[in-house]
Amino acid sequence: MAQLAPGVANQARRVIARDDSADREDLRPAEALASTKAAREALVRRVNLPWMWHAVMAVGIFAVECFIVRNPVLGAVGGPAFIVAAVLVTRARERRIGVMSDITRGRDLDAQGWWMTGAAWAFLVLGLLLRERWELGALVAVAASAVTMFAIARRSNSRLIARIRDAE
């Protein structure tokens, strides 16, 4: 009879053991609560995004905002198109990790998050106002907007993780 590779055999044994324990209904309260905590930790590992992901998004935002500042007419089309693209990329990422979190509903965006979002938009508007008079200033304002967006995304992800960990 063909033998399984040690890794595969170990995995099979682990799954069988988990399958057997899945039906247990005699969990003590402390055991039950500990098991929910373990499940939530597994979820945290899944939704915890690397900072590189948000950095790439921020660079994309910076590029689009530079484009908007240089050419506001085309930017009026490009800006909304980028927002749609960003939502689609976020959804694609959620599909890849297999978890739909409700970031778009704002559950993990508190008052400070909304305030920061307003600041990001304000920096973009500042960039537009400065574009004719001070090009470097406009570039700095746009960079500040992209950095703020990066901070919002990191903060939102941290809050999601904290919410999952702190859940009862």
Binding site: A22, E25, L43
Partner: peptide, 27 residues
């Protein structure tokens, strides 16, 4: 209260939705 159902509910309670495959992998 069954062990697996409790863990599944613990995960689903914190998100909008979760793929079956992702839940199976995590559990």
């Amino acid at each position: 209260h069954a062990a697996l159902r409790l863990q599944l509910c613990a995960m689903l309670a914190e998100v909008d939705a979760m793929d079956f495959a992702a839940a199976r992998e995590d559990l």
